[in-house]
Amino acid sequence: MTAALQVEALVKRYRPDRQPAVDGLTFTMPRGATWGLLGGNGAGKTTTIAMLLGLLKPSSGRILALGHDMARDRFAALARMNFSSPYIALPHRLTVAENLRVYGHLYGVERLEARIIELAEELNLSDLLARPAGELSAGQKTRVALAKSLINKPDLLLLDEPTASLDPDTADQMRGWLERYRAISGCAILLASHNMAEVERLCGHVLMLRRGVVVDHGAPAELIARYGRDNLEEVFLDIARAPHEVAAP
């Protein structure tokens, strides 16, 4: 079976006179896995996710998403992927149901109305379907964004800060939904997050980015043990504040 994501020597240089935002990123993420992409601000997480989604062209390197070369055949991969970020909005004046319908059509979802009802029930959105997305609270909007990202039952899900701005209860529910969806569907999930507790709970493997380079990687428990720390947050701070050898994932 092909990997969910195979990334080879990925480089993104926005300007020739500047340091690359991503510099030689290489990893292979298996299907059904949940991986975390960690790093401070400017580490290259957003640039990496944008390249994985085809929103940004790499300067060099190769991305195979679900076996499709993103440089030549990205739309075949995109139909089986999805994405959620609190920083990209859904149209505010459309109702929740209309928003889901739009994306259901864009992703060619079969039996769309039944899928919308199914998602609404799973994510407690049934009472919100007729409400404009712009009138929802931050937590409700995040649930709608998650519903949008699951509308096509993706095989590969990319999440940027999936629980940012959520209260602890809603964030916990969100993580529960993600865990359930992965268990049922076998979907691979790559998430960028600053919430280390979330990463420890959800991710089987973590890539630590610093200045566009993977400076370390491994299972959260492995990293915690290797750095002699109590939790991933302390590992993150160690890595963010001190220079490290570049590891090859």
């Binding site: 929103l55 995109l78 992927m81 994405f83 909005a89 859904l90 149209p91 994306y103 864009l106 060619g108």
Partner: peptide, 14 residues
């Protein structure tokens, strides 16, 4: 204006 282009450009819409 609705900051929706990101979602559209990562969808399978050619």
């Amino acid at each position: 204006w609705s900051r929706n282009l990101g979602h559209i450009f990562v969808s399978p819409l050619r």
